[in-house]
Design a binder for these strands. Structure first.
Length: 384
DNA sequence: CCTCCACTGGAAACCTAGGCTC
DNA sequence: GAGCCTAGGTTTCCAGTGGAGG
């Protein structure tokens, strides 16, 4: 018998009927966006806060309320939500955004081939001619700003006024990075940040209450004891006040308990769940890597006590020959190493060895066996 | 205090895939 | 169908550099 009565309550895209400890933010977002109900353009809005502080949840909540309170026959209100990190490139963001707009057949955005300018033109033309009122939510907008030309796109959106009338776009930017403003053109910032809102991290006590509330509807009675919930809140949230992590942890702990045939979640489940989350994260990151990055990662794993760029390049080159794939240049390898470092799969730091030059000291950040197990799913690496 | 290694990392050129125009 | 254009990945080129050994 399942320990869960409603697992969905603990899933990452669940929006609860009320967001605890976020009433102020909810009201403010609602207030800023409310002009749309009277067909006038709301101010652009910028939300900051670390991950798991409820930014996305608040926005989703307000938007769904907004949707609910507009008349069903209203076809000119478009609410678009794009996570700019998932969309990955500037082009990807625009293409995904365009997906919300229901462009006419001949103006559909293919997945590649068009210039950014052409994509913008199509989007703007469509909004203008259909008098659309658009709220465009860009989650993890800091990622877009870091992309080349990303800030430029924002500039165009914020300056798009008369190219769109009688339609309009209101931008809602969500950022995890509190300093991303520094990389932003000041004109864009002043326009995008017409209204700003900061989300403080949750305290451990707040997390505990959030979890308690969710657990009540997610689990059968007496599956998640107060002690278990305390531990989840403390483990996931003590450093960052990250509610998403805390909720994920609780859900996975529940799954672990269920699989092990237990009647309730104990400390052990939670610790094993925490380990599992880390393994899953790494697993997924490896799986979605391009071949070259996998090959480089594999080459890194051949050195037990860490290695350096020159040594790694030699190992990588012979690996490529063995695999029958193209060998990239050392310059490129260095760049990919940087990416792997950002993903937290590898640690690559520049060290100087005096007269023996400067290099990157490289170390694998996971068990060799974890990597080999995941990599062996790829037919190309299976034989190794 | 200077040298000089083994790279780093910026900049620009090059390549490729795919849509567009005519 | 030829020829053009762009985005994104890669290569080419190279000036710049932290610090152990002299």
């Amino acid at each position: 018998m399942s320990l869960f009565s409603n697992r969905g309550v603990l899933s990452s895209d669940y929006v609860p009927a009320r967001l605890p400890f976020r009433d102020d933010q909810t009201n403010e977002v609602a207030e800023v966006l409310s002009p749309i109900l009277h067909d006038s353009k709301p101010s652009n809005l910028l939300l900051y806060g670390k991950t798991g502080t409820g930014k996305t949840a608040v926005v989703r909540y307000v938007l769904s309320e907004l949707r609910a309170s507009t008349k069903t026959d209203k076809k000119d209100l478009i609410i678009a939500y794009v996570n700019t990190r998932n969309a990955d490139t500037v082009y990807g963001v625009l293409a995904e955004f365009a997906g919300f707009l229901d462009l006419p057949e001949e103006d559909r955005i293919p997945f590649t081939g068009l210039s950014i300018a052409e994509v913008m033109k199509r989007i703007f033309r469509h909004i203008k001619s259909n008098r659309l009122h658009v709220i465009f939510v860009m989650d993890e907008i800091d990622h877009l700003v870091r992309e080349e030309d990303g800030g430029d796109i924002l500039y165009q959106f914020t300056r798009s006024g008369d190219r769109l009338t009688p339609g309009f776009i209101t931008l809602v930017g969500i950022s995890n990075d509190l300093q991303f403003k520094e990389n932003l053109d000041s004109r864009v910032l002043s326009s995008l940040g017409e209204e700003e809102l900061v989300f403080p991290p949750y305290t451990v006590d707040e997390l505990r209450q959030i979890l308690t509330e969710r657990a009540r509807s997610a689990f059968r009675p007496s599956v998640a004891s107060p002690a278990a919930i305390n531990l989840c809140a403390a483990m996931a949230g003590s450093e960052h006040g990250d509610a998403r992590r805390a909720i994920d942890l609780l859900r996975i702990a529940g799954e672990v308990a269920e699989r092990e045939g237990l009647k309730e979640i104990d400390d052990g489940c939670i610790r094993r769940a925490s380990d599992k989350m880390e393994v899953d994260r790494v697993d997924e990151a490896i799986r979605s890597l391009p071949v070259q990055n996998k090959a480089i990662l594999f080459a890194v794993s051949r050195f037990d006590g860490g290695t350096n760029t020159g040594e790694l390049y030699i190992a990588y080159s012979s690996l490529c020959k063995k695999l029958g794939i193209e060998t990239l240049t050392q310059r490129r390898l260095s760049g990919i190493l940087g990416d792997l470092d950002l993903l937290g799969l590898v640690e690559a730091s520049v060290v100087s060895k005096g007269r023996r030059g400067r290099t990157k000291k490289i170390q694998l950040l996971m068990g060799k066996d974890t990597l080999e197990k995941t990599l062996s799913e790829d037919p190309m690496f299976g034989a190794l």
